[in-house]
Design a protein around this nucleic acid. Structure first.
Length: 937
DNA sequence: CTATGTAAACAAC
DNA sequence: GTTGTTTACATAG
């Protein structure tokens, strides 16, 4: 309930401030430094309530009616959805029918596609309902009566009420008096009985007026009639189509059954109907497969006695005769919306059947499982594309016990038709070693699972699947040796009568983006579970080739570690086996690295202490020297901004762009990101022992301008080096921390086909905004551009609700990483645009969380007198006590930040791995690893 | 408790 | 109506 209404009920005005809630404190407000004080800041609202008491009642009424209206709208929408999904209850049909026949419904309101219903007579809905169902329906109708405000609709529901009561009366056995009560009469009694004479008189006037008017007495009759007419015609056409087809099949193209004869057949006279069937000679060709063997799918089908079956047919026929058209199989048992089934199977038929007979299957084959079967066949007929193969990697499922329902339904495996998509990966390595005539081995790029559950008992419950990783491996971790891929099991769980089914697939990060070409799909429709996904493409973001480097040097990578976080998936170093000493530690990676050798024999990367290979072992000269490739899925440009090399005499020289190649797909748009070393020059000025090393970047390499190398005096502190540094704990996948380590399935994350989107949507707003801004020129965007980026690149942004926009604004406001700047639009000085730009520190180091109320609390609860530790906040760039705004955790002066005293007693708490600035990024924990002094070249 | 998401009030435009 | 700021609260771990 909305707060307004709640308050109204409680006898108050609009929501008042909760006195138990934290109070406004103008002094404690968090604000960002860039904003002029005063503007935009709020003062507590001490104004008297806006509403004069006289207005209150009127407003209350409005709230109530608005809420009721909302409830009503929602109810109607839900009804629509249920009808469309084949889960409709009788009340839903009534609601949907009303929507269709309501001549002045709000067309603008119909944002959703109109439900295709072929039942247009609300009375038909009541057909065949039991007393219990009717009772339920009555309750539902009553709530509509209560909610509906429009007169006409209200009347409709009133009428339905009466019909419903009438039906129930009729179902009841005759009372002891043996007198059949005319329920309508009693309704009339009820209606008129309590009225006074005056009221009756008024009513009479109304009725007379109504009779005099030209308006049809039954407002719906005309609409109904026209729809019925269309429907009947259509069904007649269908029927004659079927008849023609049958004739052709059975006796050739001569007419046997006379026109119209069927119409005279009385419903009860089934035997007559049977007799009228044309005679024909049986031939085995008519029945090539006598169904002696039950189809797997049919084994659980209900067994019906012949007489019962005939009775059912008679009842059905009666109903058809009464209604004048063939009702769809709603509303009770067959849950599937037959119209959609019919359309779907019709489409199947149309591909092969001669024109005019398309409807054949639609009428004869209304059966759900038939339709699903047809879809299965269509899927099979569709075959595989050039880059696809049929995938049957079915694994035995380790089922603990027989399912509980095993005695009720015969357990069976679902049928499936799966494809695996294969393709070439034109990464640097493959580009070097293969060409299009002589391509590299194909790798798995994605899968298309189509699993068929035509006879699912509970059709309203979509099957689910889960990913099972074995041997305690977690998401993002890799146990596979170099050059091989990890696999996992994907297990589909549906419920009775289906057993689980599992397949072994490659375990890489999925690309959930609903972008046109990536084709992510997860749906359950018409009994078919479809799960189509591709893996994220690996982009080689940085290829650092350092020829002429001493073989034992340690290479430190400098980059945006936050970006690294986002670079999830299979981050690994593909390193030349000769590059033995790439310091893993300093990169803060926890993912196992693997080596990608140039030669055909993979060599595992054993970490920094691996013995370097001798250069003489090199057989090719392609990568003579050291190289390190870092692959990531993300197209983040300044993923890696540099490398540093310890313990070798060196000169930094601009990196040779020819050595840097890849963006993973062969296009050469790669930004230079490292320098190489010329060992022949020994420049002591840049000796590694110098405290901080900074240099100016060449103009053409914008990533370099922020490159810095230095030694950290503080990094020896274990606590800092391990946990407090954001980048020291990269999450290989941005996965929910739900831990799916475990051999079995218990803790594996389970997903329904529906909640996948959520699952992949868990990258925080702050990081997404960061990515958005990073992708923009000048790291700057206006709000609308950010929105657009979200729409194009995130699941959040594809949501219909506006909440995500709110959250974006919230994040922009709250996060010190984002700075609002006013920019004049060229040409029109009067117009300004507000742009959001990334702060320098954020560009380098990424962003952290948004809302940090704890900051304030901890700050103000500091014991007085004591020198308070500065607040640790990922958002808080280091601030200084002496700074004028040290009370403001978001405030930090840009100039001073370069001179922060890291040596101080509490100097490092502030950085929290975020504000790294030009201060020490790495320490060389592993010490020097010289072999014998000089490089062997 | 932390990190994050979400809703919403409110001001300013 | 949009944009920006802030508060409050929810939720998962």
């Amino acid at each position: 309930m909305d707060p307004g209404r709640k308050a109204m009920i409680a006898g108050r005005g609009p929501p008042a401030r909760d006195i138990t809630a934290p109070r406004h404190d103008p002094n404690s407000r968090i604000s960002k430094p860039t904003r002029p004080s005063g503007s935009g800041s709020r003062t507590p609202d001490f104004r008297p309530p806006k509403n004069a008491p006289t207005l209150e009642d009127e407003q209350s009424r409005q709230w109530v009616s608005q809420e009721d209206n909302f409830v009503l709208k929602q109810a109607k929408k839900k009804a629509d959805i249920r009808v469309r999904e084949g889960r409709a209850k009788p009340i839903d049909w009534l609601a949907v029918i009303l929507r269709i026949i309501d001549p002045d419904r709000d067309l603008l309101d119909d944002d959703e596609e109109e439900v295709q219903v072929d039942v247009v007579d609300p009375e038909g809905v009541f057909e065949g309902l039991s007393d219990v169902q009717l009772a339920e329906l009555e309750i539902d109708i009553n709530s509509y009566v209560a909610l509906e405000t429009k007169k006409r609709n209200h009347d409709y529901w009133k009428t339905m009420q009466i019909i419903c009561t009438d039906r129930r009366q009729k179902l009841k056995p005759l009372g002891p008096e043996g007198r059949a009560v005319s329920s309508v009469a009693s309704d009339v009694d009820k209606l008129l009985g309590p009225k006074t004479y005056e009221q009756l008189e008024a009513l009479e006037k109304q009725i007379r007026a109504k009779l005099r008017s030209n308006e049809p007495i039954d407002v719906y009759q005309s609409v109904l009639d026209s729809r019925l007419d269309t429907l009947r015609k259509q069904q007649e056409e269908d029927a004659s189509g079927v008849r023609a087809k049958l004739q052709e099949m059975l006796t050739g193209p001569t007419s046997v059954v006379e026109e119209g004869s069927e119409n005279q057949v009385e419903a009860q006279n089934v035997s007559q109907l049977v007799r009228r069937q044309p005679n024909f000679q049986y031939s085995s060709t008519h029945d090539p497969e006598p169904l002696l063997k039950l189809h797997n799918e049919d084994k659980a089908v209900e067994v019906v006695d012949e007489s019962v079956f005939l009775q059912k047919i008679v009842a059905e026929r009666r109903r058809v005769l009464k209604l004048g058209y063939i009702p769809s199989r709603q509303p009770t048992t067959e849950k599937l919306s037959s119209s959609s089934t019919m359309r779907a199977s019709g489409a199947v038929a149309s591909s092969s059947a001669p024109p005019g007979t398309q409807r054949f299957s639609t009428i004869v084959n209304e059966d759900f499982s038939q339709a699903t079967k047809a879809l299965y066949e269509r899927e099979v007929a569709r075959g595989v594309n050039e880059d696809e193969e049929i995938f049957t990697g079915e694994e035995s499922v380790t089922t603990t016990a027989k399912p509980q329902w095993a005695d009720k339904y015969r357990p069976r495996k679902p049928r499936y038709f799966n494809r695996v998509q294969m393709g070439y990966e034109w990464n640097k390595y493959n580009q070097t070693h293969y060409d299009h005539d002589n391509p590299p081995p194909k790798v798995v790029q994605g899968y298309k699972f189509n699993i068929f559950y035509p006879d699912l008992i509970d059709k309203s419950k979509a099957p689910t699947f889960k990913i099972i990783r074995e041997h305690g491996r977690k998401r993002g971790e890799s146990f596979a040796p170099a050059g091989e891929e990890d696999t996992c099991l994907i297990r589909f769980i549906a419920g009775p009568p289906y057993e689980d089914i599992a397949f072994r697939i490659v375990d890489k990060e999925w690309d959930y983006s609903a972008k046109r070409d990536r084709g992510f799909r997860s749906s359950f429709d018409k009994g078919i579970l479809q799960l189509h996904f591709q893996y994220k493409k690996a982009f080689t973001r940085a290829v650092c080739c350092t020829n002429f480097l001493h073989p034992c040097a340690t290479v430190n990578f400098i980059g945006s570690f936050d970006t690294l976080h986002q670079a999830q998936a299979d981050q690994h170093f593909m390193i030349n086996p000769t590059a033995a000493n790439i310091s893993r530690n300093n990169f803060g990676l926890t993912t196992p690295m693997s080596a990608m050798p140039q030669s055909s024999t993979p060599t595992a990367w054993n970490g920094p202490n691996q013995t370097p290979l001798n250069f003489d072992d090199q057989t090719t000269s392609d990568y003579y020297g050291y190289s390190a490739n870092i692959t990531s899925n993300e197209q983040v440009n300044n993923f890696l901004r540099g490398m540093s090399f310890s313990d070798v005499p060196r000169t930094w020289t601009p990196y040779d762009p020819r050595m840097l190649v890849d963006n993973g797909i062969g296009a050469g748009s790669f930004e230079p990101s490292a320098y190489m070393i010329d060992p022949n020059k020994n420049d002591m000025q840049t000796s590694v022992d110098g405290p901080d090393l900074q240099f100016d970047a060449p103009e053409n390499s914008r990533g370099f301008s922020r490159l810095s190398i230095s030694r950290s005096p503080k990094m020896e502190c274990d606590a800092l080096a391990s946990d407090t540094l954001a980048f020291s704990k990269p999450a290989p996948f941005r996965l929910p921390s739900t831990d799916d380590s475990d051999d079995g399935d218990r803790s594996s994350r389970e997903m329904t086909a529906m909640d996948i989107d959520d699952h992949c949507a868990d990258e925080p707003y702050a990081k997404l905004i960061y990515r958005a801004l990073m992708s923009a020129p000048n790291h700057s965007m206006v709000l609308q551009e950010i929105y657009q980026w979200f729409r194009e690149n995130t699941v959040k942004g594809s949501s219909d609700t506006k909440g995500w926009m709110n959250s974006i604004r919230h994040n922009l406001s709250m996060n010190a990483a984002f700075k609002k700047t006013e920019r004049k639009i060229a040409g029109d000085e009067s117009k300004k645009s507000t742009e959001w730009v990334l702060e320098e520190f954020a560009i380098k180091d990424g962003v952290q969380s948004t809302t940090r109320h704890d900051i304030l609390r901890s700050q103000f609860s500091q014991p007085q007198g004591q020198i308070a530790q500065r607040q640790s906040s990922p958002l808080t760039p280091p601030s200084h006590e002496s700074m004028p705004s040290s009370s403001n955790p978001y405030f930090f002066p840009k100039v001073e930040q370069l001179e922060l005293p890291y040596g101080g007693p509490c100097g490092l708490e502030d950085v929290q791995g975020v504000y790294i600035d030009d201060s020490p990024l790495f320490t060389d924990n592993h010490g020097a690893q010289f072999c014998d002094g000089l490089p062997r070249f």
